Amino acid sequence: MHRLSLALAATATALTLAAPAGAAQGPSPCHRTAAAPRVVATRTSTAVGRAAIVACDRARGRRVTLRRGFVGDSGRHLPLLGSPAVQGTKVIWSELVGSAQHPRQDLRSADVRHATRQAHRRIGPQPHPDPFLSSDQLGVLALPGGALAYEVTGPDQPALVLARPGHAARTLAPAVDDEQVEDGRTLVWLAESGAGSYDVRPVPRDAGGCPIRSRYATVVRDTPELRVTVADYGFGTDGDIKAYRVCSKETGRDGIAFTSDPLILLEDRIATQGPFVALPEAANNKYQQCPNDTTQASVLVIDARTGRKLQPALSDNHSCVDVRSVAVSTTGVPAWLGADEQGALRIATPPAPGSRSATVLDSGPAGSLAGLAASPSGGFTWTHDSAPRASQ
């Protein structure tokens, strides 16, 4: 797993025996104690790339080396050892064995009470197109109920896999960069398509019917039908990334609907109507070099009951616009009021069938248009020079 990270709840415990930062990692003393957890484990390494999976049985004050190998990339030495995970008294890790030309990825486990009785499960031949696969891509996460999450290196691209006792292994997402465990029950990851999550255990709900998630305590929008919450994550190559969940109070569904950096989603202009939420996205277009406060923009509409993204989304891909306000109709159709680089206003809805340009409902000079809102009939209302106007 790339830059494997654990964000466990307060009840979780860090699993580490590592040496101080900057030093070659070696095993720390293993003191006898009755404190939980009984077993901790780590992957130690030296400056020349040699590595070992080392565990401490704290109930016995006994340290044991479970496996020796290497860290770095697969172009040098095998077996290549990933970071381990702990489930009870069992230590699990992923490793790449075989040869650089014909590698094979295995999951190996050992119970520290019987360290010599190791078991391994072959994931299968995994020919990897990159001969310099990093050991950082071989991490394992231990999840509740004996479940494991690990990254499989395949011929096309890596994939995040969930394995649960009594169930077939399930691919959750391709090309995952970061993984976290939240509240001890929810696996969250970042992929090219955005953030995703999977609840390994049921999540308790509040009085409104929405799941209780400690990381999503910030409420962006709350209506009788839905709630939009946000979490700020530290992972990502372009800075902190925000993930937005849209919860339907009718169904309790609250999937991650949108992922952005802090400059993408216009939180103060989110619009709702019944079960629909319109998320206005804006990003400066470096090719058009949009002036002033204008940007290329689009609006994504989500049906909170199903998590389905409604198409087509309203888009102004061919012009620079300053989005002033957004509305969404009773049928889930979005509209917006925007100003171009000269300050001229227009109200637009999604492109008509066969068109790539937004449908303009009205336009006028600066200050002429205001009050965009959804109407009960399914259209929109607004004012032009203080005179009411409407669309069907």
Rank of each mutant, 00 (worst) to 15 (best):
T42P: 02
R43G: 02
R43M: 02
R43T: 02
T44V: 11
T44H: 02
S45G: 04
T46R: 12
T46P: 01
T46E: 11
T46W: 04
A47S: 12
A47D: 14
A47E: 13
V48T: 15
V48Y: 12
V48S: 15
V48A: 15
G49D: 12
G49E: 07
G49R: 13
A51L: 08
A51H: 09
A51N: 10
A51P: 08
A52N: 11
I53R: 04
V54N: 08
A55E: 11
C56N: 08
C56A: 07
D57P: 03
D57E: 02
D57T: 00
D57A: 02
R58T: 07
R58G: 06
A59Q: 15
A59H: 13
R60A: 14
R60V: 00
R60K: 11
R60E: 15
G61K: 05
G61M: 04
R62N: 03
R62S: 10
R62A: 14
R62E: 10
R62Y: 06
R63Y: 08
R63E: 15
V64E: 01
T65H: 08
T65Q: 15
L66Q: 06
L66K: 08
L66I: 03
R67N: 01
R67P: 10
R67M: 15
R67D: 15
R68F: 07
R68T: 14
R68D: 11
R68K: 12
R68N: 14
R68H: 15
G69W: 05
G69S: 10
F70Y: 11
F70W: 13
G72P: 00
D73R: 05
D73L: 03
D73F: 01
D73G: 10
S74L: 12
S74G: 12
S74V: 11
G75R: 10
R76F: 13
R76C: 09
H77V: 03
L78M: 06
P79S: 08
P79I: 04
P79T: 04
P79W: 05
L80S: 14
L81Q: 06
G82F: 00
G82M: 00
G82H: 10
G82S: 01
